[in-house]
């Protein structure tokens, strides 16, 4: 059996799968935190892309993609902090986290 050598395409396809699962979680999860989990998956899939491009397409001394991924991780931390604060605050007030129950304002 001849398998094509592990290369850029492998990682890109894997990243597409991760992105799709993230999207699916965002669409289908009822829990606000579940949606946040899906978003984290999407960010990771983008990071995987960035690192793969950086590794396979550019010279070893050009690591823009890795720097970008670093920034994305930092931002994901910020986003999670702010997002969880908002979710907790919403929950304390409304006693539900099912986004379908957030209907004080019309969707």
């Amino acid at each position: 059996m001849i398998l094509p050598p592990v290369g850029l395409l492998h990682y890109l396809i894997l990243s597409v799968c991760l992105f799709s699962f993230g999207l699916l979680a965002v669409i289908t999860r009822r829990h606000a935190i579940g949606i946040l989990l899906g978003i984290e998956l999407m960010l990771n899939s983008a990071n995987l892309n960035l690192v793969a491009f950086s590794h396979f397409l550019s010279p070893d001394t050009v690591l823009d993609g890795q720097v970008f991924a670093l920034m994305v991780i930092a931002l994901a931390a910020c986003e999670a902090a702010v997002g969880l604060a908002i979710i907790l605050r919403f929950y304390r007030q409304a006693a539900v986290t099912d986004v379908a129950d957030a209907k004080l304002l019309k969707w």
Binding site: L23, L24, I27, R30, V96, T97
Partner: peptide, 16 residues
């Protein structure tokens, strides 16, 4: 059902 999933009928084909 808070943790469960909804909208699989829409979400799954869209994602595919």
């Amino acid at each position: 059902i808070l943790g469960g999933t909804r909208n699989l009928i829409i979400g799954l084909p869209a994602t595919v």
